[in-house]
């Protein structure tokens, strides 16, 4: 891939990802509201929220939080650039977890009971997801012979989902954990008025919370991008399939979110690792056998 194409896509990512994911978030709220028999806020509500948060007075329990949250945002954008510019997918996974480290450090720096609780739950969530994220990269390597996102697309004549159904199932499963949606919204809620005391972000106010939201949007864009990657091949038309797939997964997440009750972290860890081993592990084993025989 030419350097200029890479730069254009990366630039699009930086500019468009928050807009697209923000809109999806808006629709998410609307659809959720309709499912619950409410009218729901405007589709643009997430952007209004963001604007309001940025304008709020800056209160903080520990000033070092701010620079760590900014670093979280910056590193998340950097991970996205590596992914959308078509570089190594394994490094993307490593970069995302490095970025997440700053969120963890920011929220524990306050010595607040609620945010510490949320942080440790967040850590359990990260631990539940990470094997599957790494395995997805391994799956693409087995299917396409490379970790490079641009080569994975260029070298595949059919969509890689054909080789990687188990990996796809596992990845969609952990996506609920990644988005912190019910039944796995463990790290962001454990208090009666959840909107105010949101676990890991409990001590983040105003622009800090706005930046965390923004970083989450950037992260979501990468995760939907990986969903799309399962369906992309060297035919440009496959992009439509990829977008449809991402939208289907997005809708599925809303349905799951609205129809399930929160579980305990023990069950989440067991479920996530169980699904990872069964779905992705089996798929991995089969791919290895096919490779050994060919």
């Amino acid at each position: 891939m030419a350097v200029s194409t890479r730069m254009i896509i990366a630039g699009c990512y930086i500019l468009l990802a928050p807009i697209i994911i923000g809109l999806l978030d808006g629709f998410d709220r609307k659809i959720s509201a309709r499912m619950q028999g409410r009218k729901g806020p405007s589709v643009l509500q997430p952007f209004y929220d963001l604007k309001k948060l940025f304008e709020k007075e800056f209160l903080t329990a520990n000033k070092t939080q701010l620079f760590m949250i900014r670093s979280y945002l910056a590193l998340m954008i950097l991970s996205g650039i590596i992914f959308f510019a078509g570089f190594d997918i394994l490094l993307v996974v490593f970069a995302i977890s490095t970025a997440a480290m700053f969120l963890i450090l920011a929220s524990t720096a306050t010595h607040s009971p609620f945010s510490s609780q949320g942080t440790h739950r967040e850590l359990v969530q990260m631990m539940s997801c990470e094997p599957m994220e790494l395995l997805v990269a391994v799956g693409f390597y087995l299917a396409a012979g490379t970790f490079n996102v641009s080569d994975i697309i260029a070298k595949s004549s059919v969509a890689n989902i054909i080789y990687l159904p188990g990996f796809f199932v596992g990845f969609v499963f952990i996506l609920t954990i990644k988005f912190r949606k019910s039944p796995f919204d463990i790290s962001t809620s454990h208090h009666a008025h959840q909107e105010v005391v949101k676990g890991v972000t409990a001590e983040m106010v105003g622009k800090e919370y706005a930046m965390v939201t923004l970083a989450e949007w950037y992260e979501s864009a990468i995760l939907y991008g990986i969903i799309g990657l399962f369906f992309l091949n060297n035919n440009p038309l496959s992009l439509i399939g990829a977008i449809v797939a991402a939208l289907v997964v997005w809708f599925l997440e809303i349905v799951i979110d609205n129809t399930s009750a929160r579980v305990k972290w023990q069950l989440m860890l067991k479920l996530a690792w169980g699904v990872t081993i069964i779905a992705a592990g089996m798929n991995l084993f089969l791919l290895e056998i096919i490779r050994a025989n060919s």
Partner: peptide, 29 residues
Amino acid sequence: LLVGIFVIPCINYLFTRNTKAKEVITYMG
């Protein structure tokens, strides 16, 4: 990445060092 992880926090630290903030105590219900 390497430069990112060293430089990004440092720059952010320098930028935010003098941000005006109202110190509050943490939330304990």
